[in-house]
Each structure stands twice: as structure tokens, then as C-alpha cells.
């Protein structure tokens, strides 16, 4: 029993880290623009295809040498993060920015539109012939992402709890990236400008902050976090699919709302909570009940804390 609990704790934590990383992209943009970038999940998805293509081009698989794998992994993380950041930034420049002063529904519907366009791109991308899935006949089928890390149990072969190198990688790398983000937001000039803009854009402008620049930086960072998460996710799940952004995006968005949308620690908390609830529900209630249990619990949380767990409900003094 204890083993099972520990195992689910581990699974929940790793999944939760991925949700948290994606949720950060939603929450950071919302914090500044009060706008849900529904295409964010699909930026995550396309970034995964970048790594998949790279892994295919480099001919990496579980037989490759340790040096080649480590190098390839670093390359994937850099490439997918840069791609995710730039794609997100481009989407903002081309689609959302012209609609900044339009009624709120206009950018929202456009974001949903962009989401579908990106999914279509993913479908096309997935249909290209690539070495690692042998010709790529069926575009819509999930694509195998090779297991680039050894599948050994770090706790020893006799242990009932499985802790693989990829679990360590997911948790460790996520913690590093989240700490870096915290450092940027809390201590750098850009981070302070981001917080100031989120709290009062007009006052930020009056202090000389170029709000457009801050928005661009936010899309760039949020997209890069999504890109990074996509590599971690692909390594962990070993599958890439053109609709993976839809489901994970929805979960991550929910995590952001439960944590308190616009709140950075809230997104991490919400993501971890979602991952843990999902793991335990799958184990003890049954995977077929997953969406109902998960969203049921989330609704209960929101009923009691409508602004989310860390969202501010206290009124500020005027």
C-alpha cells in the first residue's frame, strides 16, 4: 500500500510538473493582458514536433551512445524552447496585437482559431516521413518518441517503487526552470516591469515602462516554457500527437485557474495539485473516471475559492 502511494505520488509529481510549466504560459499572459491564449497548448504541441524531427534527423534512439544522447537532449531542449518562444511571440504580433483594443471576444475567438490552425500544422507535420516512425503513413496517429534515457530503476531492481532517470530529469529540470523564472520575475528589471505592468499598465507606462515590450517578453518566456515542457513531456510519455496540446493545454489552463489565474506560484501549485489528484484518482477510483473526478474536485475548490487557491480575493485599499 505504501509503495502504491509513493508510486502515485511520483507519477502525480512528474505529470504535475509538466502541467505547471504549461500553466505558467497561460497565467503569465493572463496576468498582463487579462486574456487567455488558447493557442498556448498547441505551441506546446508543435514544439514537441520540433524535438521529434530533430531526434529523427540526428538518428537518436535508445541504442545511441550516452554522449550522443546527452548532446541530443540538450539540443532538443534548446531548439524546442526557442521555437516555442518565437512562435508564441509571432502569434502575438500577428494576431493578438492588432486586436489589443478590440472587444475582449475578438482576441479570444482569434486565439481559438489559431489553436485549430496550429493543430492542422501539427497534423501535416506529423504526416511527413521521418526515420523514427518509418515513413509516417498515418498522419493522425500518435508518433513514437524514442526513450532516450535508460529505463533502469534507480531504487534497485527489487524495489516495488519505480524511479527512472526520466522521472529525475522531469522533476529536476522543471525545478531548475521554475527557479530561474522566479528569479527573473522577482529580481530582474524586466521581471519587475512585468509585475508592475500586470498590476497597473497605465501607471507602468507613466513610469517609463514600454508595455508593448513587456508583453512581447511575456509571450516569449511563456512560449519557451511551453517548448521546454514539450521535450520533458515527450521524453516522459514517449508519444507525440497533434492533439496533445489540446488536452494538456486544457488541463494546464484549468491548473492555472485553480491556482489563481495571473498568479505565478499559483500556476505551479495548481499544476502539481492536478497531477497528484489525477494520479491518485486513476489508481484508487479508476482511469475511466478521471475527467469526472478531476474536474469535480476542481469545481468544488472553485466554489469555495472562486479566485483560485492563491488568487487574491482581498480588496486593495484605495
Amino acid at each position: 500500500m505504501l509503495d502504491t502511494v509513493l508510486q502515485q505520488l511520483l507519477i502525480g509529481l512528474t505529470n504535475g510538473m509538466v502541467f505547471a510549466l504549461v500553466a505558467l504560459g497561460y497565467t503569465m499572459v493572463y496576468g498582463i493582458l487579462e486574456f487567455i491564449n488558447f493557442a498556448h497548448g498547441d505551441v506546446f504541441m508543435l514544439s514537441a514536433f520540433v524535438s521529434l524531427t530533430l531526434v529523427g534527423a540526428l538518428g537518436l534512439n535508445d541504442q545511441s551512445s550516452a554522449g550522443a544522447l546527452a548532446g541530443g537532449l540538450v539540443l532538443c531542449i534548446v531548439a524546442s524552447s526557442v521555437f516555442g518562444g518565437l512562435l508564441n511571440l509571432t502569434i502575438d504580433r500577428v494576431v493578438y496585437k492588432p486586436l489589443r483594443k478590440a472587444p475582449k471576444l475578438a482576441p479570444l475567438v482569434s486565439a481559438i482559431g489559431v489553436s485549430f490552425i496550429l493543430q492542422n500544422v501539427g497534423l501535416f507535420w506529423g504526416g511527413m516521413s521521418m526515420q523514427i516512425f518509418g515513413g509516417g503513413g498515418q498522419a493522425a496517429a500518435p508518433k513514437a518518441f524514442p526513450n532516450l534515457l535508460p529505463a533502469t530503476n534507480l531504487l534497485g531492481a527489487s524495489s516495488h517503487v519505480t524511479l527512472q532517470p526520466k522521472d529525475v530529469l522531469v522533476i529536476g529540470a522543471s525545478l531548475v526552470v521554475m527557479s530561474a523564472l522566479y528569479g527573473i520575475v522577482q529580481f530582474t528589471k524586466l521581471g519587475k516591469a512585468m509585475r508592475a505592468t500586470a498590476q497597473d499598465p497605465s501607471a507602468a507606462r507613466l513610469m517609463g515602462i514600454d508595455v508593448d515590450q513587456v508583453v512581447s517578453a511575456t509571450f516569449l518566456i511563456g512560449g519557451a516554457l511551453g517548448g521546454f515542457a514539450s521535450v520533458i513531456y515527450s521524453l516522459y510519455i514517449n508519444t507525440v500527437h497533434y492533439q496533445m496540446g489540446y488536452q494538456n493545454g486544457l488541463y494546464a489552463f484549468t491548473a492555472a485557474v485553480v491556482g489563481g489565474i495571473g498568479n505565478i506560484p499559483g500556476a505551479v501549485l495548481g499544476g502539481l495539485l492536478l497531477g497528484l489528484v489525477r494520479a491518485f484518482s486513476d489508481q484508487f477510483i479508476g482511469a475511466q473516471w478521471q475527467p469526472a473526478v478531476l474536474f469535480g474536485i476542481l469545481i468544488v475548490i472553485l466554489v469555495f475559492r472562486p479566485a483560485g487557491l492563491l488568487g487574491s480575493t482581498a480588496r486593495e485599499k484605495v
Binding site: 519587475k192 509585475r195 498590476q199 497597473d200 501607471a203
Partner: peptide
């Protein structure tokens, strides 16, 4: 510089950070 009506300080930033934002440029 324009100090707007209703003070418009950054509520969730510290006093020192607010002053720092004044020196942003």
C-alpha cells in the same frame, strides 16, 4: 512625470520596489 489620480501604486510590489519602478528609465 504624471502622478495619476487615485495614487495608482503597484499594490503587490513592496514600497522599495515601487520607488525602484520610478527610477526605471
Amino acid at each position: 512625470v504624471h502622478s495619476p489620480e487615485g495614487r495608482r501604486v503597484f499594490p503587490r510590489m513592496t514600497v522599495a520596489e515601487n520607488l525602484e519602478m520610478g527610477a526605471y528609465t
